[in-house]
Nucleic acid binder design. Structure first.
Length: 655
DNA sequence: GACACCAGCAT
DNA sequence: CCCGTGCTGGTGTCA
């Protein structure tokens, strides 16, 4: 077993970089080498570079912290080929301490230094010194415009691609490798203590690999003691997707550049107009939270709606919307608030659109990162960009603020900027009401389960129960909304008070508990369990810690208790969807390699296939996703939709 | 420049 | 206080 860590050049790998420092630790000795990856690199090649590469290649077990990140670097450095990690067998010898740490305690901050401090009770070598040293070097490189192939953020001046492979998809930002530090001529570094230059970095590299090694041992021991024979199965919940995520990140998501540019134009058009209007209505010279706060609550003396955590008067959308509705129609405040709300929406949208365009690689793909251990609950997180927060079409003010809605009606949909690459189609598979179904099943609420099985709408069903409607009656819009609040309250583990507050009905909770006795009992049992054990188990036995539990004596316990219900439900969702992804990827690999998973959005999987692909694959995928849920005892139907143009326009697939 | 706060987007 | 989990970006403050 060896531990491997890499330190990469400090700018964007997507535009090329100079060299990597690679550290290896086998439990006894630490060795390192710097591997130049650019043909023009001035980094010195260490004599034992080849030896290190061979050791990594032939190692039986490689332990890394956040393995996908370092493996990208190792591919860049030529240790592995870019296709190696596509094979699930490749990952059988990779142990990722981030997965171990997540299983050990899912609420820990999973950074190496934090885990080291927590469990090894060790200090890192002078991180401050490393940071300042590296920053000095970067500044020096920038200032003197040295002729090193260190990539630049703007990318325009650095066009070469390394190793003839697709290296555009990955961004890294970290330290300068030791060889680069050493190669700065002594005469050019008056502020840098010579001997320390690379020593600091190497100390850090050594600390990283040895700590990773020790953490792996610690976590393995803890996990085996706690979970015994189930350890492998539990670890597999995240490990099973290592190669799947590799492929997803590598191939990326197609961005429709034309639509994106058009959407940006459209945003600018409205922003210019609305900004002028806001400025002239308010007499302000700039629009920030602070100036708005003064304008509304001091100059205009509008009533305070709520306060922020720090005690400032809130100026969020909810507040502004209420003030807008309470204002005299056509008054200055009314018009200002309406325009400002619309302006903010457009500005937010523009922000997203520009980030998409900026993150795009040469061929027009975005390459979001997916983090299997990125949440407390086993759900995924996504970043650069976060593909899980791309807005659907819709006008949030359509119902209750026509003045605002009017401005937003032509607002572009962000999902329309994504879609299948030319010549392809997307298959978009959604679990229907997955979270609510999970809740019904884990709470063993038979009436709800029956309703689901009959194909009823969950919100309608609960509305009928609460308002004791006859079969012939349909719930009103308001009744449905209240039922929706109750349902979400169940899922989120909201407190009775909160549920009654959002629904606006006092005494609602006692109605609900009598209507759904098992659900109520489940919530109470969960709370009692948390009080005793400080954690919950979701389906499949994966433990989910509750970080606020330790503070229970200071009142945080109640919070943790309510969160516990939510953890079980979200955790089950995460586990099920991960299983589904693995099943679908296995299926595609063996039966239809032209297809692939493009992205995951919590209860939604998106696949890309060649246009006019055989329809049978739709139903096989649907069946596999449903199978994943049923393996955990949950019946959850999947609705397949087809996108031929954009993510925003999908058509239900008929049986 | 680092950091905290506030906000807004998703499921 | 009591609705969970994430990510990103702008603003303002502080050193």
């Amino acid at each position: 077993m060896i531990c491997v860590d890499t330190e990469t050049t400090g700018l964007y790998l997507q535009h090329g970089c100079t060299a990597f420092s690679i550290g290896v630790y086998d439990g006894n000795t630490f060795t390192h080498s710097t591997v130049p990856v650019s043909p023009r690199s001035r980094a010195r090649t260490c004599s034992h570079t080849q030896e290190i590469k061979d050791r990594i290649r032939s190692a039986e077990t490689i332990v890394m912290h956040n393995a996908r990140f370092d493996i990208k670097a190792l591919c860049e450095a030529g240790v592995f080929s870019w296709d190696d990690p596509v094979d699930p067998a490749f990952w059988r010898r990779v142990i990722d301490t981030i997965h171990l740490a997540h299983l050990h305690n899912s609420t820990d901050r999973l950074s190496l230094d934090n885990l080291t401090a927590l469990y090894l009770e060790k200090e890192y070598p002078q991180e401050d010194e490393l940071v300042t040293t590296v920053n000095l070097c970067r500044a020096l490189v920038r200032k003197l415009e040295l002729d090193w192939d260190i990539a630049r953020e703007d990318g325009e001046h650095c066009s070469f691609r390394m190793c003839g492979s697709n290296t555009e998809w990955n961004r890294m930002d970290y330290w300068l490798p030791a060889a680069v530090l050493e190669s700065i001529p002594v005469s050019l570094r008056p502020n840098l203590p010579n001997a320390r230059l690379s020593r600091v970095l190497l100390e850090y590299l050594q600390a990283d690999v040895t700590n990773t090694f020790e953490l792996a041992q610690f976590f393995f021991h803890q996990i085996l003691v706690k979970h015994g024979d189930k350890s492998e199965e539990l670890l597999n919940i995240n490990r099973q997707l290592d190669h799947v995520l590799w492929k997803m990140e590598y191939k990326g998501v197609w961005l429709r550049s034309q639509e994106t540019r058009a959407a940006i134009e459209s945003c600018y058009h409205y922003i210019n107009h609305l900004k002028q209007e806001c400025l002239s209505l308010s007499g302000l010279d700039r629009l920030t939270d602070t100036t708005i706060r003064i304008l509304l609550f001091e100059n205009w003396s509008l009533p305070v709606v709520s306060q922020t955590k720090k005690g400032n008067y809130s100026v969020n959308a909810e507040t502004l919307l209420r003030l807008h509705r309470d204002a005299e129609p056509d008054s200055t405040a009314y018009r200002f608030l309406g325009s400002y709300l619309s302006l903010k929406k457009y500005e937010k949208k523009l922000q997203f659109l520009q980030s998409y365009l900026n993150n795009r690689t040469g061929k027009g793909h975005l390459h979001p990162s997916f983090h299997a251990s990125g949440t407390n609950t086993t759900r995924f997180s996504s970043s650069n960009p976060n593909i899980q927060q791309v807005t659907k079409a819709g006008n949030p003010y359509e119902d209750d603020a026509p003045y605002v809605a009017n401005y937003l009606r032509k607002s572009p949909s962000l999902r329309s900027c994504f879609g299948p690459a030319p010549g392809h189609w997307w298959l978009d598979c959604d679990y229907s009401q997955l979270q609510l179904r999970i809740f019904a099943y884990v709470a063993n609420e038979q009436g709800m389960i029956d309703a689901f099985n009959k194909g009823w709408d969950a919100h309608d069903y609960v509305a009928r129960c609460i308002f004791s409607l006859r079969d012939t009656e349909t719930p009103t819009k308001a009744q449905r909304r209240i039922a929706k609040n109750v349902n979400f309250g169940f899922i989120f583990g909201a407190s009775p008070k909160k549920i009654e507050q959002t629904a606006g009905i006092r005494g609602l909770w006692s109605t609900v508990t009598s209507l759904f006795p098992n659900a109520h009992a489940f919530i109470e049992e969960t709370k009692a369990y948390i009080q005793r054990h400080g954690l919950v188990y979701t389906v499949g036995g994966y433990p989910l810690a509750l970080k606020d539990y330790l503070n229970k004596h200071t009142g945080e316990y109640e919070k943790a208790a309510h969160a516990g219900v939510n953890y079980i439900v979200q955790g089950a969702e995460g586990v099920i969807v991960k299983r589904a992804m693995r099943l679908c990827d296995d299926y595609l690999t063996s039966e239809y390699p032209e297809g692939r998973i493009v992205l995951q959005c919590h209860d939604e999987l998106v696949f890309e296939f060649p246009a006019y692909f055989p329809k049978k694959h739709v139903w096989n995928i649907v069946n596999l996703m449903e199978q994943a849920a049923s393996e955990y005892g949950i019946h959850a139907p999947v609705d397949p939709e087809l996108c031929t143009q954009s993510w925003n326009k999908s058509v239900k697939v008929q049986r």
